[in-house]
Amino acid sequence: MRRTATSVWNGTGTKGSGHLSTQSGVFDQQPYSFKTRFENEDGKKGTNPEELIAAAHAGCFNMALGVQLEQAGFEPEELNTQAAVQLEKQGEGFAITKIHLTLKGKVPKISSEQFQELANGAKANCPISQVLNADISMEAELIS
């Protein structure tokens, strides 16, 4: 399996702008710029790579946990995960230093201990977690 995305950028790093497109077409020339990345400009004006990493990580983690829960005999009603990507200035550039996952899961008939164990396994083993070189922390809450 191979997935692709394309970025086109015009102009300088701080004054230019670009757009992102994905193979599936879900993203088709979505705008991004220095302002949407570093100045928290209104999200309606574009996205940024860190936001996309957060979305990919939350989605990957939820799917990995869903599989682990299924294999353990549980059927989750809902897994709701927010991934917060932290971008920090380091030297002359920037680095993603942390990602924090906040999970709220509705899973009938599971103990809190089993839920935590499976959530930690998904955090460690989802492909996006494995590819990122950042400290990945998590809070997992079982809700009823």
Rank of each mutant, 00 (worst) to 15 (best):
Q68K: 15
V8C: 09
Q29S: 12
Q114I: 06
V131T: 15
G46Q: 00
I143N: 12
A84Y: 09
T97G: 02
V26Y: 03
S7E: 02
I96A: 09
A64K: 08
R2E: 15
I99Q: 01
E141F: 11
M138V: 05
L103H: 02
G46C: 02
I110E: 03
T97A: 06
E139K: 13
G11S: 05
V107C: 13
F38R: 15
Y32G: 04
M1D: 14
F34G: 04
N48K: 00
K35D: 10
F61E: 01
T36E: 00
K45Y: 03
L52E: 10
D42T: 09
A134Y: 12
R3F: 00
G93A: 09
I136L: 09
E141Y: 14
E70L: 10
S144Q: 13
A119Y: 06
K104F: 10
D42F: 12
K44Q: 13
C60Q: 01
R37T: 12
G91K: 00
A124S: 12
V67Y: 05
F61A: 06
E41Y: 07
K89Y: 11
H19R: 04
L101M: 04
K44T: 15
T14W: 07
E50W: 03
A54R: 08
G105S: 14
E117L: 00
A55L: 13
A54W: 04
I143L: 07
T6N: 07
A64Y: 05
S129H: 05
A134C: 07
I96E: 12
A54K: 06
R37E: 03
G91A: 03
A56C: 10
